[in-house]
Design a protein around this nucleic acid. Sequence first.
DNA 1: GCCGTTTTCGGCCCGACTGTTTTCAGTCG
Length: 575
Amino acid sequence: MDNIQIAEMFNRMAKLLEFKGENQFKTRAYTNAARSIKGLDEELKVLYKEGDLDSISGVGEALKSKITEMLETGTFDAYEKTMSEIPQGIIDIMDIPGIGPKMARLFYEKLGVTSVDELSRAAREHRIRRLPRMGEKQEEKILRSIVRLQGDKDHGRHPMALAMEIAKEIRNELCSCPHIEKVTIAGSLRRKKDTVGDIDLIAISSEPERAIEFFVNMEKVEEILNSGTSKGSVIYPGNYHVDLRVVDKEHYGSMLQHFTGSKEHNIHLRKLALTKGYSLNEYGLTNESGNITSCTGEEDIYEFLGLDHLPPEIREDRGEIEASLTGNLPRLIERKDIKGDLHVHSNWSDGANTMEELAEAAIQRGYEYIAITDHSHSTGIANGLSDRRLQEHIDEIDRLNEKFDEIKILSGTECDIRTDGKLDYSNDLLEQLDIVIVAVHAGLEQDRNKMTKRIVAALENEHVDIIAHPTGRKLGKRPAYDVDMEKVITVAAENKKALEINSSPWRLDLNDINARKAKEHGVMIAINTDTHTLDHLDNITFGIDVARRAWLEADDVLNTMNLKQLCSRLGIPKD
DNA sequence: GCCGTTTTCGGCCCGACTGTTTTCAGTCG
């Protein structure tokens, strides 16, 4: 079991215990431990082997032995026992937005409801409204939630790039409201998480109620979830859940800090504030005598707590607070550090543009180099290049390099790694290229062992420079293929190969966790766009977002090197 | 169930909104 699975099991256990009416602090201990585990850099199985499970905060003797049990058997006794006492469908009911353990228990005890379908029927038959603290509106709300949940295959998560466009559209509309002074995007979107569950916005207004009224009555709003005096929530087309929080100027900083999150980061900050005798909330810092220090800028809060102004991308409670306290915060990579793009397709394979157009677009973006990496012949559907056409491809790039002074065009390939780990081109041919990217495009269903061996074999080829989109995931479409990333990263480090962060909004592969792991093993990362049309070149910002979330600095990234450094690394003769 | 620079017992992050009440529990972020 990996850390995520163990954390999820603790979270489910917490829900089950709450359903049973257990002591709330006991249930919280499980969620605290789950949170702590999700934030670990190290795999639990490694800590377990080294006898270091004691080092995890929020994990005491009892939970430690449950972790051990899970690592050895895949589950733990107390969990199995609790599960056997509670009907399976109850878990699904508690996953319905607006229904927690208390309500699930009420429906179960009073109506015998044990599944989402039964709950839906009870609501339609108006049996819910007769229960204590329930009524007509609750019934309608439950039915709406069920319908929305069932119509939503992706569990409400959206690729960050798409959500960002919607967020900007809403921000622009809100800015036209005379009662709104300023609108800022907050939440996981501000932290640039690869997928986001909702869109959080903060507005400054001296008339919050009128601002909220404007918000919930925007033309495109499909449903108003709630609408209070300082906060509103709506559903926007595409099943986007949008929250707006309205605040006066004086509290803007603390509000922005609070609603940027993450939740885990904020909890850690509040605990830190408490050790200094202050309570922290979205209105500022309160001391023991009740005096509030309001914060107009969020940097005020960090400064007060003795921390650097932490970049939103790393606010995940994955060590950023400790790093800041000890002066070990990374200087995160920025857009201006990028000197070129190393994964671009032309119309020689499945790209839309000529090599010349790509070179010109790269010049416009201030790049020193661009690698044209068209597909190899296995990817027939993408018009992959035969041996003969690859030779012509190399010649064409030579010709263009004569023409362009402002940029170096690198001749490359995105060569298929076949199912047996062999590459599409011979070593003789690969040797003639400036840069060799390899990738898995077919046979995605291979088992973990075969897939790992396949990629490792490619990493061990002396001509290979970069593995593209190393896990093959496509957000909302298909999961990563089954591969031992620890092994891939270790072998990449041994052979001095780079791994890619693919900047396509649908891939973002490697993700932040794996990219950070790669950095820790000393593996260089290439942030590439996998461009197929000119505008894709600008997707580089999404790749940089992932890199920043992975704590990467400019020195960790291959394409922050200038041309001379890059040529030296790739072994390209200077000309 | 966890934890300790007052504590090994008695605390445990904090506030808005809703729907139901007539003062608040439940849920969410």
